[in-house]
Design a protein around this nucleic acid. Structure first.
Lengths: 253, 253
DNA sequence: ACGGGCGCTTGATCGGGGTCAAGGCGGGCC
DNA sequence: GGCCCGCCTTGACCCCGATCAAGCGCCCGT
């Protein structure tokens, strides 16, 4: 609600670069919204982040934010839309690393080699915030809360990737995937029980290590047993507790 | 060579805490050896790291360096021996996250929650260096090379975990596993073509998402086709190029 | 309105590897 | 020294999900 109402103030901002909204609106869905507002970064820190960020986009579905092999220079926070990151192995097969919603950071896996190890592709209309990494790292030395938040996000990505390795059945994986998306949408203020998949079945299958046909069949079985209703890419959760039961084996202890 | 000869100077060191060797020897196999010696940290930075580190161990096989659920307070660099990190899901099944050789950092995946999400268990006699994380983070704000090295290691862990997700056959996984171990041993100055597995087959199987029986069978097949020779936990690579060929599908592009 | 293509679904078959079962071997402890 | 237990191996069987194949429906462009 505050979002649409605040558009009237869009031009009365102090931020000289990414001034498409006032500071609260600008960061409310942004990667650093939490750290700025919630983790003790003061007005000055917020200001400095705003000076650092560059708003980029919109990208259309299929456009690349960065590409495998590009020289690493920045991390990006998704601001709107969904981004998929993926690699291609030497057989030409795609391996999808993740689907990234607004507020999530991409490019962190490139720090180590200074080369992006994956493509970042818009799945729908996408806007991002670009943070020059050298500048961000320098800022992190001056503002410990920003350093801490970077450490946190890197650490979380390790845990998330580890979680995906777990042995499990197609049912467990798909249930966990839907629940995970649902939770992330909910955390962003969307309905928890109705979500729109922004990627084709084949991408879901690839991400989960399944065949597209299996995704289709399992979704149908979930629907037949009343767990959810699927209509194209729209999914309505009808029995979240039941889904959680199906996924329970691979949810964190 | 310089190692055994330097023992004569063991007591003539400036480091007040972890003074079991001179500075070069102490760090030569340590997580921060590279950053101290190779990435531009000067004498002062090295000194500061030395003041921060606490040498711990020896741990015997089966001992825990830390446990799932423990409050996160420090990261550890393996100094000697091999450490496995593993989680237990709610069905009681183990999920092995990694095997960590000397010079590798463990505990980075706990930053995010401030709770260790896994057990760290010694597979043989192990010594570690403990770095209080708050102190390390503070030091990182003052010494950018240390901050950078932490970012790098976190980033690398993300990439490593992502790599493991890839669909692949038992043969590919096992070949890649052996080659990976071989390369890591070689980078630490050990023979590349003769290595000792420090974990039981069941742990290898768990780590690779296979059954122990499959590991056994595939190793036998590799041996029958002349790729390597297995004798208990001793593995001799006889045809590394052939192994690389088997693993090629899942090696980075 | 129509054609075409891509994404999705559903069915049929097949195979890699998990599981169950039964030894063999080796090392530690009394 | 001998026993025992845990690790490893080998064999037989079977199941989940991949693959192959066919058809459907929706959207998009002309």
């Amino acid at each position: 609600m505050g979002y649409s109402e605040s558009t009237g103030g869009r031009k009365a901002v102090f931020n000289p670069i990414a001034n498409d909204g006032d500071d609260v609106t600008f960061c409310s869905t942004c990667a650093f919204g939490a750290v700025c507002v919630g983790h003790g970064v003061d007005k000055i820190g917020l200001n400095e982040l705003h000076c650092l960020v560059e708003h980029a986009g919109p990208y259309r579905a299929g456009d690349a934010i960065f590409r495998n092999g590009d020289r690493f220079s920045a991390v990006y926070a998704v601001r709107a839309g969904t981004v998929k990151t993926s690699q291609v192995d030497r057989e030409g097969r795609e391996l999808i690393l993740g689907f990234h919603l607004p507020g999530e950071l991409i490019g962190l896996n490139a720090i180590h080699t200074e080369i992006y190890p994956c493509d970042a592709i818009a799945l729908e209309t996408v806007e991002v915030c670009r943070f020059s990494f050298p500048a961000l790292a320098t800022l992190a030395t001056r503002i410990p809360q920003i350093q801490k938040e970077l450490f946190r996000r890197l650490s979380k990505d390790i845990g998330d990737a580890s979680q995906r390795i777990q042995e499990s059945t197609a049912d467990e994986r798909l249930a966990a995937f839907i629940l995970n998306l649902s939770a992330r949408y909910e955390a962003r203020g969307f309905a928890a029980n109705a979500l729109r998949l922004s990627m084709p079945r084949s991408d879901i299958a690839n991400y989960l290590g399944l065949a597209a046909e299996t995704v289709s069949r399992v979704l149908r079985r979930f629907q037949d047993s009343g767990l959810l209703v699927v209509e194209g890419r729209e999914v309505s959760l009808r029995n979240p507790a039941g889904l959680r039961e199906v996924a329970r084996n691979i949810l964190p202890e």
